[in-house]
């Protein structure tokens, strides 16, 4: 069963590799690149929210740290893109390690509030700094190659997805995280180390997010605190995960694709009413929490059985 799922994932991935060969329209390719990016952000968000049961309202901080480290290294130090983005991911991971140690002691809502406060503090800090350009943001050297960015984004997100799939669905690590989610004290009584597991999950969620942030910065060539560190990054990832189905790998992907498609169509036809998007986004979260507790994934008949098997 699980191997059949893996071959399904591989098939989808192979199909996505072929997209630039079929799609020659630059605009469409940009749309696909961004869709892949949101899949990555939703999946990384779900590691902590769905598998470990900790809502990280500061997910944008990792994205922003990755983007800014990459931008600073490339613009101010003249680094090449690849090492800069890798270091961006490492910086996000390091940030998760340092912040995670004290923050993950907090449970439930306290954790959510703390990560939210920390992310907004970082955003305010970046607004005030000189090296980041403050509210004016930063401009990166432009590279006009849509295909390159599509493959880079797909590569980063693909590696992340399959690494997660192995760690969370095949290796015992995923089960350990779920044990922490269900009953932290019980997990501890069974000899697990919840603090260590939670920090591992936090770092595991942060590193790819930072790299994705770095790719995003080089791709769009302009970043500012609102676009990379703003609440909207965390908000959208949260909607995608909740709407698709928390605690699974497929759920966030489905959620990301559906929400992003909707967003793109919305912007294409209704861009005069951009704030309407916030209303719909909020409405979708609230409604799916009330009516779709397991997300879209929970509505599909055979999947529901699978969810009950796990429970």
């Amino acid at each position: 069963m699980k191997d059949r799922r893996l071959s399904g994932h591989l098939l989808v991935f192979a199909a996505m590799l072929l997209i630039p060969a079929v799609v020659h329209d630059t605009f469409l390719l940009r749309v696909f690149t961004e869709a892949v990016m949101w899949i990555g952000l939703a999946v990384t968000f779900d590691v902590l929210a769905g598998y470990t049961g900790y809502l990280n309202f500061g997910h944008s901080a990792f994205f922003g740290i990755g983007a800014y480290i990459t931008a600073i290294l490339m613009v101010r130090a003249g680094w090449h893109f690849a090492p800069a983005a890798a270091l961006g991911g490492a910086a996000a991971g390091l940030g998760a390690l340092i912040a995670g140690f004290p923050t993950l002691r907090l449970r439930g809502a306290y954790f959510a509030i703390a990560t939210w406060a920390l992310a907004r503090a970082i955003q305010q800090g970046v607004l005030m700094m000189d090296i980041t350009g403050g509210p004016d943001g930063m401009r990166l050297p432009a590279l006009l190659s849509p295909g390159f960015f599509y493959y880079i984004m797909l590569g980063v997100v693909g590696v992340t997805f399959f690494a997660y799939w192995f760690l969370l669905e095949r290796a015992p690590f995923g089960l350990k995280l779920k044990a922490v989610r269900e009953d932290e004290q019980g997990a501890e009584a069974l000899g697990l180390n919840p603090t260590k597991l939670k920090i591992q999950a936090f770092v595991l969620s942060a590193v790819p997010t930072g790299i994705i942030g770095g790719v995003f910065a080089y791709w769009v060539t302009f970043i500012d605190p609102a676009s990379t560190l703003g609440d909207l990054v965390s908000d959208q990832a949260l909607v995608m995960v909740v709407f698709g189905g928390m605690g699974t790998l497929t759920g966030p992907v489905i959620g990301a694709v559906l929400i992003f498609t909707f967003k793109t169509v919305f912007w294409a036809y209704l861009s005069d009413y951009e704030v309407l998007y916030l209303i719909i986004l909020g409405g979708v979260i609230a409604a799916s929490v009330v009516f779709l507790p397991d997300g879209v994934l929970g509505v599909l008949p055979q999947r529901r059985k699978g969810v009950e098997d796990h429970a």
Partner: peptide, 28 residues
């Protein structure tokens, strides 16, 4: 209430959705 895995977090997510909606409505 109900059979959701983590009710407290779901409550948080729900009110969070409300807040986004209200902010969008107000800006509109």
């Amino acid at each position: 209430s109900g059979r959701r895995g983590n009710p407290l977090l779901m409550g948080l997510v729900f009110t969070f959705g409300l807040s986004l909606m209200f902010r969008g409505l107000a800006q509109t």
